[in-house]
Amino acid sequence: MIKHHPKFELLQSYVNGDLPASLAIGISIHADMCTDCQHTIAQLTEQVAEHSFEEATVRLDDLDSNSFTSYSEEADEEDFFESMISNITFSDDADVITEALQREVIFRDKTYQLPTALSRIELGKAANIGKLSRSRLQLDEDEIHSSLLHINPGGGVPAHTHKGFELTVLLDGSFTDSRGEYNKGDFILLDGTFTHNPISQNGCLCYTVANDALHFTQGINKLLNPIGSFIY
């Protein structure tokens, strides 16, 4: 049962196409498994579409300022559009849509099906520390890092916080932290003020996005801070 969802504002930015690919992918993965959010997204899309295309005329404002140039610009634009139409309709071919390919990944001998949103993104080689394995997604979004993070049964990430944000979408399995249990499909977005120590009893696979290194907060694990950026 999914309990954690993206905030309304985030869904809105998703629908508008304003989010970086990494976050849009996170929401897409969640929505794939969450009919509530699917419904909200469908509704928001309808609304923003209606709003985008409702304005009756485009150039009303231009007319009073300088009608002469705006007329000739309009004529130019008309020519331009005419030629675009004939270019586009030159060929009668229609696109054939192929089934989204099902992609699988293997972490420590376990095979997982990846969601459609991840089906074509290049994956880096898996790196392992103890019960954690991480494979970086090649999205090239500067300081934003996206990964697949696999936790073996009984493993966990030591108590940490972030300077930026940390998104976790559970693709499979479950984990717990001080706030409770998280299950497949949960969308967990934390900001830098929150400290947590996720532990996975039975193992899990997560899609993670973070825009800065982890910062370990407890005892001996503080020694790990130099490699904090390694995990997420």
């Binding site: 196409g17 690919a21 579409a49 295309f53 089906s119």
Partner: peptide, 28 residues
Amino acid sequence: VYTVMRNVTFDLLRKVKSNREDNLSDDI
């Protein structure tokens, strides 16, 4: 049409910003 436009825009913005031509939008 909005979804088509949004997807085209997303892919083009990504091309401009991250220099990636991976056209992810239709998967997202």
